[in-house]
Design a protein around this nucleic acid. Structure first.
Lengths: 123, 123
DNA sequence: GTCACATTCAACATCATGGTTGAATCAGAT
DNA sequence: ATCTGATTCAACCATGATGTTGAATGTGAC
């Protein structure tokens, strides 16, 4: 759970690190789409869009179902969920007591005695 | 909110797409760390680790505070939160009614009349 | 068979990423 | 001034990501 499937998380986060692919996911969140439908809003060749879709598929973020000529793509919730879960493990850093956290960190600094002086190193 | 800061999200998700950097974030979640402390568990040169840290910093995932010789790094909750928020917008896909979602997608397929035949294209 | 359609494949160019090494920087301690 | 320590910088290299184009595939319609 902590770092159970690193390769999968790698692929998932990398896939999410591209605006084109994120928009595709958003479009898919409104319902299943064919490859060309997914490619349409993006100013790039179909081949390029096809590659993006393959990246999403490789990360397990989408699933594709081939019906005659067209490939129907749909969101795969599980992969999105694992990215979400990973981030969730850091939720204590923003959820509640965010200010308390700051205080804790500063307390830790005080415990880790910082060399006293040098209040303004620049200028 | 929908795609407010694409470059930032790009950087954040890409930074998360590397196991080395994720482990650094995990270590940082236990408290502030110096560059060499962050680098230590990883079998790579300090320079390489330094680059990873710079990627995290560039994505706004961490913040660094320079005190005399050592650079103290700490988590920056806001950036993690924006990644979390982005994923949150897809939460309906895993939160509740995950099975209902499946049903909805299949209903949509029924509405989007699939060319009737071809029940088993393979074999 | 031939046409049109949806999608992929292959080859290519380009740029980013992740790693190495060795020198450079910068600040205190001696 | 010199030494040590923490970190970065500058080449450099190998690999992968992203885009292009043009040909190939597979399947239903004419």
């Amino acid at each position: 759970m902590v770092e159970s499937d690193p390769p999968r998380l790698d692929a998932i986060f990398r896939a999410l690190g591209d605006a084109t692919r994120r928009r595709m996911l958003r479009d898919l969140s409104a319902g299943a789409r064919s490859v060309s439908e997914l490619a349409e809003p993006h100013e790039m060749s179909l081949a390029a869009a096809s590659k993006h879709i393959k990246v999403l598929e490789g990360a397990g973020l989408i699933r594709r179902e081939i019906r005659w000529r067209t490939h129907l793509c749909r969101l795969e919730p599980a992969a999105l969920a694992s990215a979400h879960d990973w981030l969730e493990s850091y939720s204590r850093f923003w959820n509640t007591r965010l200010d308390t956290l700051e205080a804790l960190l500063r307390a830790e600094d005080a415990a880790n005695p910082p060399p006293p002086a040098k209040p303004d190193p620049k200028s």
